[in-house]
């Protein structure tokens, strides 16, 4: 069984981004980039499935500019077997990403695709669901547990009111939620080993995917600032103000 894990290179979660009001875009110069945290969880899960002998091969895939190779190397250092890079100038919108992944799924005949439930840059939460539509296969979003039952996959999902467990036919697409696992750090020997692992490269043209976006970003602005900073000295003062000034209790 083969597992494909798409990983996205995003602004590191600790970085507070800045909107450049002149160009109406996000200022990305000299900003620390990392693997999308939910994709790290997906990588970890794939590695655990391989370690427990339930899958044979685990492949990391990234789509974007040449620096995405670093993100793939990171996944390889964690323990993925090999990498695939589809080089594009920018990070395309989720539908196009899903189409590109789908072509790799076909080429590699992957049985399971595990990816993050959302990327922390565009916050779309679409790619996995869209991929499942293109693959015409089963879907389990927001996974907090993955097990196998013969040839089926059993996934517990984090839903609004609690947990839902479903049984899926393969091939399947699974998106990861926070509590699925805690990703490991790459050890130094594994970082060295990862340098020798293979990364295959494709261009969108090789995969015959039309890269024309369907959405236009008209502008990007800073959100209105919230005026905070008010202080109270005691609980008595707090309750009095909530009752008489704000009128919320």
């Amino acid at each position: 069984m083969k597992v494909l894990v798409p990983v996205k290179r995003v602004v590191d979660y600790n970085v507070k981004i800045r909107v450049d009001s002149q160009s109406q875009s996000i200022d990305l110069t000299n900003i620390k980039m990392s693997m999308n945290p939910f994709d790290e969880i997906a990588v970890e899960e794939a590695i655990r499935l391989k370690e427990s002998g339930q899958v044979e091969e685990i492949i990391a895939l990234s789509i974007g500019p040449s620096q995405c190779q670093e993100t793939i190397r990171n996944a390889l250092a964690m323990g993925m077997d090999r990498g695939i890079h589809i080089e594009t100038e920018h990070s395309p919108e989720p539908l196009i990403v899903a189409k590109l992944i789908n072509e790799i799924v076909k080429k590699e005949e992957a049985d399971i695709v595990i990816l993050g439930k959302q990327a922390i840059d565009d916050d779309c939460s679409q790619t996995g669901q869209m991929l499942s539509a293109l693959m015409k296969c089963s879907l389990a979003t927001f996974a907090s547990n993955i097990t196998f039952d013969d040839d089926r996959v059993i996934v517990t999902r984090e839903i609004d009111g609690g947990l839902q467990t479903i049984k899926l036919q393969k091939p399947t697409v699974i998106t990861t939620d926070l509590r699925l696992n805690e990703p490991r750090y790459a050890s130094l020997p594994n970082i060295m080993k990862a340098k020798k692992k293979i990364i295959d490269k494709y261009l969108p043209d090789d995969l015959n995917i039309d890269m024309t976006p369907k959405l236009d970003v008209i502008k990007i602005e800073e959100p209105p600032k919230r005026q905070g900073g008010g202080k109270v000295e005691t609980i008595i003062e707090l309750v009095e103000k909530l009752k008489n000034e704000a009128g919320v209790i």
Binding site: S125, M130, P213
Partner: peptide, 22 residues
């Protein structure tokens, strides 16, 4: 909601349109 997020992108991709989230 988790339902909307689960279902709508699957519809969007089948219709070959990009979704606008949230």
């Amino acid at each position: 909601t988790t339902n909307g997020k689960n279902i709508l992108p699957r519809v969007a991709a089948t219709l070959d349109v990009s979704q606008i989230s949230e």
